Amino acid sequence: MITVVGCDGSPLSQEAMDRLQAASLVVGGRRHLESVRPPERARRIVLGDVPAALAEVDAAEGDVVVLASGDPAFFGILRALRGRGHAPEVLPAVSSVATAFARIGLPWDDAVVVSAHGRDPRTALNACRALPKVAVLTSPACGPGEIAARLAGWDRTLWVAERLGGPGERVVRRTPAEAAASDWADPNVVVVLDEDRLAAAARVHDQPAAPPDGWAHADDFYAHRAGMITKWEVRAVVLSRLRPTLGRLIWDVGAGSGSVGIECAEHHAAVIAIERDPAACELIRRNARSSGVRVVAGAAPEAYDGLPDPDAVFVGGGGLDALGGALARRPETVVATFAAVDRAAAARRLLADAAYEIEGVQLAASRFADLPGGSFRLEAQNPVFVLTGRSR
C-alpha cells in the first residue's frame, strides 16, 4: 500500500502516524523527513531526484509512505504517482496556498493558482500580468525576486509567504521593486494582486477565469475617434487568429482605441497596448479600465525595448517598421491588418523573409442600414487585408 501524507507543520493525525510506523519505505523532502522522524527500520529516500525516488517506490515491497507539502493532490506528487499506475491513499493537510491566503486574510475563491515549479514560468508570469488575484507556487529558479522583476511595468502588490507552518514562517507585503531587491527563504508562495481592479470589481464571487461575455463587441462599445477602430467584423477574425488565452502575452501595436487588446484581455491573456499618440493612450486607458491592459506610450519599434517577449502580436497601426520590429522578437503568431494593397504585399514579403507560414484574407463587409418606410440598404465598409504569420 502507498499512502501519501500531507505535511503543513501541524502534528500528523493518528492515522498518518500509524501508516508511518508500518512503512518499510518513507520518501519525502529533507525537512519533512526530519520533522516526522520515520521509524529507524524504515528505509528513507530524500525526494530530490523525483524520477529516481518514484522508481524506488515502483520497486518497493511492503508499505510505502510518501511525505508531501500541504495537499498532495494540489500541484503535488499525487499526479506523478497516478501517472505511473499507482492508486495511493491520500491523507492531505492544508495546502500552502490556502494557508498563505489565510495568513494574509483574503478570500481566494476568486483567485487563480499557477505553478512555476518544474515548468516554463511564462504561463505563470502571464497569469500574474493578466489577472487581479494570482497565487504562484515558486521554485528555486523562479522565486519571489524573479517573479517581481518580470512584473516591472505592471501595477501589482506581492505578498510573499515563507516557510509556512515552520519555525521561520514570515508573510510580508512588498512592491515588485522591493521584492526584486530582496532575498527570500525557501519554500515560499507568492500572492500577486492588482489592488485597484480588486477594489473596483462589481461582483465579489465571480469565478476567476469565467468565459468572456461575448466577443467582437460592437464598435460603439469603445470610445474612439472618428471611426479609428478595428471594426467588429475584422476584430472577430483577428481574435480567432491571435487565440488569446490564459498564460499568453499579446502585444497590441498601434492600438488606437485598444479594442483588440482589450478583448484579448477578456479572454485572460496578458496584454500590452503600444500606442504613440498620447490622446489615444488616454482613450485606451478609459476603455481598458477594468481589463488590466498595460499601456505603453511610444512609437514602434522603439517602444518594444525592455518589453517581455510576446506569444502573439497584433499590428493594427505603425506600418511596416512596427511589423518588422515585432518579427525580430520571434512571436509564435503575428496578425497584421492593412487597408492598402501595396502595404499588404510588402508585409507578406516581410513575413516570408522571416520564415513564417502565411495566410491572408480580404474582408469586405456590408452592414444593414435602415431606410424610410422600414426597408434597408447595404452600407459598404472599407475592405481590409488580414495577414497571419505562424512560426515554423
Rank of each mutant, 00 (worst) to 15 (best):
65 V>K: 00
82 R>Y: 06
79 R>W: 07
45 I>W: 00
73 A>H: 04
39 P>G: 07
41 R>M: 04
18 D>P: 03
61 E>I: 05
73 A>C: 08
42 A>N: 11
38 P>H: 03
76 G>P: 06
32 H>Y: 06
74 F>G: 02
72 P>C: 05
36 V>H: 13
68 A>Y: 01
78 L>A: 07
16 A>I: 09
49 D>S: 13
20 L>D: 03
64 V>E: 00
65 V>T: 10
60 A>C: 14
43 R>F: 00
54 L>F: 06
81 L>V: 11
20 L>H: 04
17 M>A: 08
66 V>I: 14
48 G>Y: 01
35 S>Y: 04
75 F>T: 06
24 S>H: 14
49 D>R: 09
55 A>M: 08
83 G>R: 05
59 A>L: 13
53 A>Y: 00
29 G>W: 08
28 G>S: 07
27 V>K: 00
42 A>C: 11
41 R>H: 13
38 P>L: 05
46 V>C: 11
80 A>C: 09
47 L>A: 10
33 L>I: 07
15 E>D: 15
60 A>L: 10
83 G>E: 12
84 R>F: 12
60 A>R: 03
50 V>F: 03
32 H>Q: 15
38 P>D: 05
89 E>P: 05
15 E>L: 14
70 G>C: 03
79 R>S: 12
41 R>S: 14
33 L>K: 03
50 V>R: 07
87 A>L: 15
38 P>F: 02
27 V>F: 01
57 V>E: 01
21 Q>V: 07
30 R>V: 05
19 R>D: 15
86 H>W: 10
57 V>T: 10
40 E>M: 08
90 V>P: 04
47 L>I: 10
42 A>F: 10
79 R>N: 10
89 E>H: 13
82 R>N: 11
86 H>D: 04
21 Q>K: 14
